[in-house]
Design a binder for these strands. Sequence first.
DNA 1: AATCGGTCCCAAAGCGGTTTGGATAGGGAA
DNA 2: TTCCCTATCCAAACCGCTTTGGGACCGATT
Lengths: 361, 361
Amino acid sequence: MVALQSALEIKEAMNLRELAQLLNLSQTTVSRALNDYPEVSEATRKKVKDAARRYDYRPNARAQQLATGRSMAIGHVIPSSSQHEMVNVVFSDFVAGASEVYAQHGYDMVVSMVADQDEVQTYRDIAQRQKVDGIIVHGPIQNDPRIPLLNELGIPFLVHGRSTGVESAYSWLDVNNRRAVERATSYLLDLGHRRIGLVNGFEHMDFAARRRAGYLSALAAKGVPADPDLMTSGEMTEPNGYEAACTMLDLDEPVTAFVSSSIVPTLGIRRALEDRGLKIGSDVSVVCYDDAISALPNGDPGAPTYTATRSSVRDAGRRCAEILIERIGNPTLPHVQELWEADLVLGGSTGIAATPEPVDR
Amino acid sequence: MVALQSALEIKEAMNLRELAQLLNLSQTTVSRALNDYPEVSEATRKKVKDAARRYDYRPNARAQQLATGRSMAIGHVIPSSSQHEMVNVVFSDFVAGASEVYAQHGYDMVVSMVADQDEVQTYRDIAQRQKVDGIIVHGPIQNDPRIPLLNELGIPFLVHGRSTGVESAYSWLDVNNRRAVERATSYLLDLGHRRIGLVNGFEHMDFAARRRAGYLSALAAKGVPADPDLMTSGEMTEPNGYEAACTMLDLDEPVTAFVSSSIVPTLGIRRALEDRGLKIGSDVSVVCYDDAISALPNGDPGAPTYTATRSSVRDAGRRCAEILIERIGNPTLPHVQELWEADLVLGGSTGIAATPEPVDR
DNA sequence: AATCGGTCCCAAAGCGGTTTGGATAGGGAA
DNA sequence: TTCCCTATCCAAACCGCTTTGGGACCGATT
């Protein structure tokens, strides 16, 4: 197929020198006028700005970056191992929030998705080649090596989440995962449930470990023994949620309730219940950790289908961006460490435990 | 809370001049040695590369970009109006594929999410300030103004999708949305369904318009009249799918089958069916357009729950990246226009129409 | 011996901005 | 009138890399 070459005249972008010549001014003055430096008279400034607008002059970003030493960009590195968990749902909503703030401050967002084994190299590269002014660290695991690495590289960064075991100081923003799941579990216990399944994410992920801790601590507080058969961890996908739910529903002593780590596996749990003709809420209760993803149920406040611990990951993205930009502006500020509480939103997916479960022995 | 300032020595990154001095060579030679130019002897090249490795020298990206005139980055602009539809699920999988290819070729991905009214400015900015070497256009609408704009700006770009009504030539990669939905609808008709609901995306989006055309054409081919009550369009969210399904199931002549535009609203359809005690597949059939999102059902090839027209959006991302990179390398190449066919995958969500639907009159 | 053609390397000139260190002019104070 | 100060502008250096246009050296040709 032959494609017609566009016949449109493509106007070369004009540069500072040309604009200065046009105005019979020096580059210095033009540059200062545009950047609101006080050394130019208001009259000249106006003239310059008008001309810039008229000729649609925009400073070349690459030159500007080289000259100023700032790249006006913030990096997000996503290890591909966590692709299935992170990328699809949570990450994209986070990014939507962050990029909103970036846009306001003139920052660009550069995203690298990278194989695990290349991760360290990627961080080194990004930092030393000065591609970005700051980095947001996603999906921290326990004892995450990226944190000391970034500290060593001396580039401002902010962790979305936390990393237990890391010695060095760093800035982070996290949701109180432990408390959230603790409350969710307690609530189910209060409803009379004793066989409560935990469908967790991979537990080397820091957030998942904390959720498990919350689950265990709620059980312990009520004197309910933890049963390894009722705790699964893995990718937070629909099929995985389905699998986990099937297993736990088909036990000799089946579960009567689930605590699920995300809305996505919860969809799988629902499918498993449906298969068995079990009604969610009345037959089996489900509480899920809801990141308030807009495309999925419960993102819509009008239809609170699930009882859930809810916290907006989009808001988190926004706030992370703000904090990081502030730290880029002044890296010597004390570290910011924000812990957000999730809401426990009651919905139709939970109810009194059906049978008081007579313990036969 | 007082944060301890890291006491770690942060080694300043070394630059080309310093490395050259260290080696008693000129910057020219060092640069050429590192970039595999033939003008340096193998001996010197080895010496240089060894030293570079030893001192962990990495060229400053900003300087390199300015000098070469290439920014080694590709832009993705997401209009925020399509956030709910695009960002969450489809976009992120696409991006995962694309960034894989970018990484292989040394490109970075810069993502801007931007309010609709700022869109034109954003494109102008990105292009004229030379922040990126190429752009991928997401979510084309009919007669999309971005295409002539980018042609005028003279920056290489590739459209994921197509835009009916656009005169100018451009490169694109699209799935045959029309054919896919046509086949899906025909299949349902063959199963005896006559009341088939279409749960579509916003129909100013090009892909959605094509899907509707496919739906209508299949009906027409079988002589089944189209009923406006059976066609909805809107955001592709779970709650929207639920709403649409409820409406169409509660008609006097209810639907017996659905064609759904994406897996996400399909989850809502399933919920609506469940509410009414209807069994998917046997009572009501559902075919959905499946972008093969990995976290959601059907992304997993082991569990073909839904009958679906399937096409991997991640593969599309990969291929789009390849095409664009090629076009950046040689912008005068004829335009690439690739039309992919979606697979029709039979699953458990479709079955013979329950009642042959006696037309009462 | 002079010329030629490679090979290997270098100094310097970009890339397109920002920033430093004056220069000039005009107004007010002494 | 002279001197100083401020307001305004400019030439040139600089950011760190690539690339142009030679130069020096050496063995091979004539």
